[in-house]
Design a protein around this nucleic acid. Sequence first.
RNA 1: GCCUAGAUGGUGAAAUAGGUAAACACGCAGGACUUAAAAUCCUGUAAUUCAAUAAAUGAAUUUUGCGGGUUCGAUUCCCGCUCUAGGCACCA
Length: 864
Amino acid sequence: MYNFKKIEHKWYKIHKNINFLKNNNFNNKKYYILNMFPYPSGLGLHIGHAIGYIFSDIIAKYKISKGYNVINPIGFDCFGLPAEQYAIKFKINPKLIIKKCIKNYIKQIKKLGIFINWNNIIYTHNKNYYKWTQWIFIKLFNSWYNKKKKKIYNIRILKNKIKKKNIYNKYKINKILNKYRLIYLKKSYVNWCPKLHTVLSNEEIFNGKSIRGEYDIKIIKLLQWHIRITSYIDKLLKGYKYIKWDKNIKNIQKKWIGKKKVNYFNLYINNKKKIKLYIIKKKNIKKIKNIILCAPSNNVDNLIKYIKSKYKLKILNILKKIYNLKNYKYKILIKSKINNFKINIYISNYYKSLALNDVYINYNNNNNKFFNIKNNLILNIKKHFKIKNIYFSKIIKKKYIYNLKDIVFSRQRYWGEPIPIYYKNNIPYNIKEKYLPLKLPYIKNFNKNSKLNNYNKWYWNIKLNRTVYKDKNNKNIYPLDKNTMPSFAGSNWYYLRFLDNNNNDKIINKKIINYWKYVDLYIGGIEHINGHLLYSRFCHKFLKDINVINTKEPFKQYINQGLILYNSYSIYKINNKNIIISYDLIKINKINNYKKIYINEKYIINNNILNIKKFLNNNIKYKYYKFKFNKLNKIICNKELEKMSKSKLNIINPNKIINKYGTDVFRLYLMFLAPFKKNKIWNIKNIKGIKRFLNNIWNYIIININNYNNYNNNYQLKILYNLIYKLNNNYKKLNFNTSISLFMKFFKKIKNLKFNRKVIKKYLILLSIFAPYICEELWNKLNEKNSIFFEKQPIINYKYLYNKKIKYIIMINNKKKIIIYIKKKNNNKQYIINKLKNNNLIKNYIIYNKKIIFIKNKILNILL
RNA sequence: GCCUAGAUGGUGAAAUAGGUAAACACGCAGGACUUAAAAUCCUGUAAUUCAAUAAAUGAAUUUUGCGGGUUCGAUUCCCGCUCUAGGCACCA
């Protein structure tokens, strides 16, 4: 048994002081590998993160040993909702919470045995970082896209043009410019909670009520910043040519962008109100009969009111009918008179659209193609009938439509980058670049009212160029924008900043970016494809257009990491009552007004039963709650298999496993578990095999430590080169579970042969990439003075891989009978048949054959 | 509901320009060592049936979620389903 704790600690300390990664030798080949940076939550790093970091470390170490100049950095995406909520709960500034979390994360990352560029670390909430996030905001604000020339121009050019005309006043000019800016103001819908006095995300709402406090939600319109990503759609679509992503990943994004050529109609309701309607095939318009309006999440009642008032529909009958269909809980039939004809309008929540912005018509069950309608309703036609009862205008024109919308870029929160805009007579102006950053004020006694609009110093003095208190007598003071940016603002462009994280004068140095260019391999979850990955591509293209960088795409290759799935458990609380109800009762009694609360696995006894005593001991809040038990006098919890995530409280901390088995075993195990891309259900069952494997290697080498045999053994060299050959293929495929089994197979063979120092040393170099510490220690014990990570990858001598004989599988009626080996010079059909005529098992078959199928170098199949 | 991916022994999985299904592990069973346990090592291990023996063993059939198709041959390609997971725009 080797003492992994001692060894791993020793080599961690030594490696810390050696720089294996990034240097400034710009003549060397470069390799930029990057993991999606984590959001530092209180629960810390989980297995999913660990797999990602270990995977990228393996590739980084491989590339180093191939002579590349490698960068593999880490940073933290610090702004965001969870920290702010936590801050409200405990009345501390989010900055302090984040600081604690990051410390914990770094501690955990250091246990994984990975090489990280610690000098290049970034934090998005650091003012030296978000200064540049704000800088990008201003650049977007002051740019517009010329559709004819397909180029980005400064807004000043447009402004001067309009001014020259001398027709418009400054308000009108501002309105026009707002229609062109790449970041612009527009009203859009949000979930508003009057009681909490805040905007809520879909995730903060359950069954139509806010999760915090269980209050009602209203849908209101708010003036918000939007990014005009739609003007970059063609560029985004063209960009796929330059990147090496999986086909299906590209397809997901392409479909999300959803460019379609359509015909364009008007649909009239009550002769007055019209809905714009896009249709792909003209003839399909005849098939429309029913219309389904899609409500935002679980909020059908509000939608009915909205529709009633907007379209003045006479609602004849409302049938609250709950269908058994999965997502059709809120399907409601409204019979109304439209153009004196009856039409069925269904309302459903099956499309979870927050802003009511998306409108689709599904006209055909078979091929599920969609129409898109503008006026904030979703229409879905299930069956096709001949048209009788709706009136359509003639086709107006053909045009392109997109699924992708401009992105809402403002949040009504505190914990985000402040928007560097102030308002003069209601016209937005940006703070001058040289006065950035516009710092986020520090609020000590943090609570739910801690927002920028409650912060009394939130005014901009254009003379002093800093934030000030309001002073009625001073004419140079203007109110600042009270929104903050969403959390993806900082993650749009972070991969650039790693390369030059301390630069105060520029977003990035030109020389540096010209060398590193882009991320060669980007690793992250598939769930980010339609968000972060798309926004980053947009941002990169914009930065290219304003000459910050000169490459077309940010991520040359992208590999999506499979999700780690694990059981999550939840209990159910009746809305507005302090009652916890057993999950099976909800199903039996079809109860609707409940709230789902995730709980930790440790409170569960067998068969999903809640251990109430244990639960109450650690959750004092529920001490005075009533419990509604089932027939067996138990509280049953809901068990689901979901992705490992902090919000679901089903995360596994890697530290426990590392402490028990060591980093090397942990690393090998995670890679051995399953293919990297595959979703994996977490289990720890098979880890013993890895432990045994490393132990055996240790024992084998330690016993032979003074054996200096260095001879050339053909068989040993053959299996070694075979191993290297197959490992190299796996590096190309980016799949390492079979690499581990290759190492095991090799060791099985070699351990029964004479000890060969030369072969074993090469084996250690190969294995060190996966199990760094044990290999480093053994390398050292074999009297090597330098670190094993300065060694280059062993090179294959192909002479040894050459096979003299060819294997043939002989089949009778597609079933394997025997295997024969043929010399290369005899590799032909007739020779094999002749040979088989002398074989007792086969010769009769050959005589009576109907047909013989011969596949060169593989198979001879005799059909009878 | 729509979009995307996946499904192979008791378990994690391996094998796809269509050609020996189950590599490598875990678990289990038996054995060795030990007073005993743990650890370690060795042997066996997809299922069913048949033959035969003291025993080793041999033979046949079935099997990659379900139902079809193409093919001499399908885990792999095509069509139709089922189930599971992820995304659906303010979680990150």
